[in-house]
Design a protein around this nucleic acid. Structure first.
Lengths: 180, 180
DNA sequence: GTGACATAATTGCTTGCACAAGCATATACA
DNA sequence: TGTATATGCTTGTGCAAGCAATTATGTCAC
């Protein structure tokens, strides 16, 4: 793809484009902040950590390679290393050498980690509902989902190296009793 | 509102709710990263700084009170202080005491800042198009906008004190020649 | 088997943000 | 006028994240 900086054509964005873009940014920031604030306040658990627990919980055996986990939580590898260190220090995760490739590490959810997730999930899910899901009907959510998927599909390229923000997602619908 | 942590009802989120929520997070992260990467690569300008320039450019007189600016760019007050310091060091902004209230500061866009914005805007707008706007039709953008506005409307409360993420938005459609 | 290169994760360093405390000014009220 | 309180911004501090460099392991060619 040509350098995005130098494209010859740059008509201003249309009103719809601009408005949609702005509300997209604002909605994400506002909602995300609220969820973070509420989860930390009620559970002492940052969203990024919650997200890691969820991903591990929904992985087979509660274990995931570091790289794969980093991709799933949209964090850089180094960022994930530190995050998992914290979780390890708190007893929620342990690390073990990958049996099939000694270069790799497995992050494994401990029983304590699973328990922590179970405790925290209801709070977080309530937050997601109250700041996000409850504002829209099922049909509207479906519509939103499809629009967003369309955005994701057309991305010029899957990011290479480091992913990076952080996120937070409840488990895969029916995984542990707390994805629910 | 009752503590979100303790809500008595916590049915799991529905598939639609979950799917929409996940794609929302992922889309934001992926798109935002791409824009940041491209703007820094092509213009040496982080999105947060670009956003401040845009907000100032579209304000009357190119000036804004610090607090108001912080609210607009969704940054904490202290965060904005530091950001404006950086811009000031780079000559893109200057500060002056607010004439009507000596406690306040005005951040004022300099000619150099305006020029910098003019240079950077085409690149950024191209990025917004290629990673966001071009994926959807005008109708779809309109639809997306309305769904997101609905989310924003129903927020339990406008955040009090410190806002905080960062964002990036092109100017108000018809402001300077670079909002366009 | 040995050497060149790829890949996984970690470590050092830098940057940017938020929270809390502090300083200066403004406002209310006696 | 003088004192108490609120407001606007900045500074001190700590933390989390990314990039670049490093270490350890795996893979392939020969």
């Amino acid at each position: 793809m040509p350098s995005p900086g130098a494209g010859p054509a740059h008509p201003p964005l249309s009103q719809s484009q601009l408005a949609a873009w702005r509300s997209f940014l604002r909605a994400h920031t506002v909602i995300t902040r609220a969820l973070e604030r509420e989860l930390v306040a009620s559970q002492r658990l940052p969203l990024a950590e919650y997200d890691v627990l969820v991903q591990l919980d929904s992985a087979p055996g509660g274990a995931l390679r570091m790289s794969q986990l980093a991709d799933q939580v949209l964090l850089s590898r180094s960022g994930l290393t530190r995050l998992v260190e914290r979780l390890e220090g708190a007893g929620m995760v342990r690390r073990q050498v990958c049996p099939s490739d000694a270069r790799g590490s497995l992050a494994v959810l401990t029983e304590a980690g699973r328990e922590r997730l179970r405790e925290a999930a209801p709070s977080h899910l309530n937050s997601v509902r109250s700041h996000f899901a409850d504002a829209l009907t099922e049909d509207q959510l479906e519509e939103l989902h499809q629009l967003l998927e369309r955005l994701l599909e057309q991305l010029p390229e899957g990011d290479p190296g480091e992913g990076g923000c952080s996120a937070v997602e409840p488990g895969p619908a029916e995984a542990g009793e707390c994805g629910a």
